[in-house]
Amino acid sequence: MTGMTTSPTTTPAPDGTHPVLHATGVTMRFGGLTAVRSVDLAVHPREIVGLIGPNGAGKTTFFNCLTGLYTPTEGTVTYRDTVLPPKPHLVTQAGIARTFQNIRLFANMTVLENVLVGRHTRTKEGLFSALLRGPGFKKAERESTRRAMELLDFTGLADKADHLSRNLPYGEQRKLEIARALASDPGLLLLDEPTAGMNPQETRATEALVRAIRDQGIAVLVIEHDMRFIFNLCDRVAVLVQGEKLTEGTSDAVQADERVIAAYLGTPFEGAPGQEELAEVEAAEAQADARADLTEDTP
Rank of each mutant, 00 (worst) to 15 (best):
T76A: 05
L84C: 13
D235C: 10
T24N: 11
R236V: 12
A283F: 01
R259N: 10
A179F: 01
I261L: 13
R259C: 01
I48G: 07
Y170S: 04
V43K: 14
K139W: 09
T78M: 13
E150F: 00
S38P: 05
L127T: 14
I230F: 03
E74L: 09
L191A: 11
K139Q: 12
G171R: 05
Q242N: 15
V281H: 05
M149P: 02
E207F: 04
E177F: 05
I230A: 14
T34S: 14
P85T: 14
N199I: 01
M109C: 09
E125W: 12
S251R: 00
G134W: 09
R104M: 00
F154T: 08
V77G: 11
P135Q: 08
K139A: 15
E113Y: 04
A57P: 07
A292H: 04
A263V: 10
Y170P: 01
Q101G: 10
L69Q: 14
T82E: 15
L21M: 11
G187Y: 02
A196E: 06
I52R: 06
Q101Y: 14
P273Q: 00
A208Q: 15
L151I: 03
R291M: 03
T6V: 12
P273I: 06
T82F: 07
G75E: 12
G32Q: 13
T155Q: 00
L151T: 08
L131A: 10
V91W: 10
V91K: 04
R80C: 11
D293A: 13
V220W: 00
P88W: 06
R80A: 15
A183Q: 08
M109G: 02
G3D: 14
D235A: 08
E276M: 09
E224S: 07
I223L: 14
A290R: 03
L132S: 02
P72T: 05
A57V: 10
L294F: 04
E172T: 05
E207M: 03
S144F: 09
K124Y: 10
P268T: 12
L21T: 01
S7P: 11
E193N: 11
H120P: 01
H225E: 02
E276D: 15
T298R: 00
I218V: 08
F269V: 13
N55P: 04
T123V: 13
G136Q: 13
M149Y: 06
